[in-house]
Design a protein around this nucleic acid. Sequence first.
DNA 1: CTGAAAGCGCTAACAG
DNA 2: CTGTTAGCGCTTTCAG
Lengths: 342, 342
Amino acid sequence: MSSLQEVARRAGVSKATASRALSGAAHVSPAARERVATAASELGYVVSSTASSLVTGRTKNVGVITPFINRWFFAEVLEGIEGALIRAGYDLTLFRLPSEPEQRSRLFHYFLVRKRVDAIVCLGVALTPAEVELIHTLRRPAVGIGGAIPGLPTMSIDDVEATRLATRHLIGLGHRRIVHVGGDLGEQMDFEVHARRLAGFRSAMEEAGLDCEGAFRATTFSVPGGYESALALLADPAIRPTAIVAGCDEIAIGVITAARELGILVPSELSVVGIDDHPYAPMFGLTTVRQVPGEQGEKAAEMVVRALADATDPLEPVASEIPIRLVVRRSTTAPPGVQSVR
Amino acid sequence: MSSLQEVARRAGVSKATASRALSGAAHVSPAARERVATAASELGYVVSSTASSLVTGRTKNVGVITPFINRWFFAEVLEGIEGALIRAGYDLTLFRLPSEPEQRSRLFHYFLVRKRVDAIVCLGVALTPAEVELIHTLRRPAVGIGGAIPGLPTMSIDDVEATRLATRHLIGLGHRRIVHVGGDLGEQMDFEVHARRLAGFRSAMEEAGLDCEGAFRATTFSVPGGYESALALLADPAIRPTAIVAGCDEIAIGVITAARELGILVPSELSVVGIDDHPYAPMFGLTTVRQVPGEQGEKAAEMVVRALADATDPLEPVASEIPIRLVVRRSTTAPPGVQSVR
DNA sequence: CTGAAAGCGCTAACAG
DNA sequence: CTGTTAGCGCTTTCAG
């Protein structure tokens, strides 16, 4: 509405001084600074971010690309990113990556490159080498979450190690008939998460000399997916596994729900291990390989913000992979009183 | 990187013609248009959105304010909004509304007003009259979701009616000992959702001449919340209710999980009705009062986009309340074979 | 410490 | 149909 010009006039100074006073950076006499401040607040002045972006080349805005918004892991990371960005004075522009390749490149070129964002956070998106190069050409800091992207700093768990850990945990408990209910290899996510988690399971099984034949059930990466799959898998008591490694906690929760519905006692008759540390884990007595998505988002956002702050000129991102430490977290099982009621 | 100037030079036309050719609006000779197009693509040119925003006054960007990102209903609406916006060529800038009042007003003035957004979608946020006035002053189209905001078009379900419907449904089934497990009135959401849903429950109970005394359990609006609450509520078979009206589907799912853990058969020994039509509803055999959050988001986004398109100048929003139709949706109960296994 | 002036990259009249 | 000319609102040298 009201421009810097008006503020300056009202304060009896020039636009330049008003600008300096407001931005707080340069040296302005206390008196002038004061007058400008009151003038601005009286007029309800706020800088036009477009105008200031045009001249500074910085938008104070970070773009986040993600394939999903309403899936627990992604939404959680998103909240973490959002918090860190707002704290640092950055806005967050959200792009959901379409699955169709041409749509995808349209998004990249049309929406992302228009000088709309100072930096980019890629959540669960494996950028192609060409896309990474584009980001480098644009000299925009970028960081990935959920899998390694060559040429970009990324943070992610080791998906192979996660299921390996889970599987070893179950083997250590004495289980021999273990099945992996994981993501359908056909509807692969980026970074081949499904395949990598399956690989970790296989590796642990083979290392223990156990047979993997038919020990994998493919499903959707969701609670209903795990439920449907387990309903079929657990129906026949004769061939039922004694333990399940779920592809993620959501699948695990579905599996446990199905098991309970079938009258199978968890964990005495069936042990289930998931991955992610979903908030519902405790109420399902779910043991899980822990990762904290919100923290990952926060860290990633802090990284790009730091890069933005450090760099006089937009910074060349350093390539490196930041691993997330994995731990098996055993949920406290339901209170004994509850168990006995059954 | 490369500017319009360079494109123009390469195509042998003026900046103005290049601009017209690229934006596609005005009349440009096919030959010139062609030359500009190839020049632009050879140079990998993309408009600087900041520069173009500065002169047009439009950012092609819509702000979305929401208190939560990682809660099913909100994330779902968000996806709907995102889809509709991207389709219309708008970006989405996401603001999570802090709960602290001063932070909130800071967000409003500092982030939202800086000419960063062409329009605003308020999701689950009850704007104050002052905030609405500010939006009107800015002449920005705005629409609310989740509750009525005087002075703004809003879309929401009737929260009172939702629980009333749910409660009547249970009463119709012959239930008399019905409890409402709903949101804690202390940690109120905007629009007094918790209180309104409780009111609907009470109204239906009283209308049927049933006693509401002690028939309300306050909890968190979440699956674990419903679970914890139900564990206590259902522990004693002697005083256990035969039906529960949950404040939302997430609570309902928690309740059902607790019931199953306690060995209570659902729905034969305990009927539960939720609100929202959560994707897990079918696997829990949950009957629910249906609303489709994704569609609400889509519609809201389409409304602001239309307002933006219709208006030569940013449009004065029309105040009106768009109700969402409510229906009780009975989930198919689990397959009979499964029931008998128990 | 402060003011004048020169643009940032683009679009929108206004003449040709 | 196309080129010229002004700015949009701000920051930033560069002189005072």
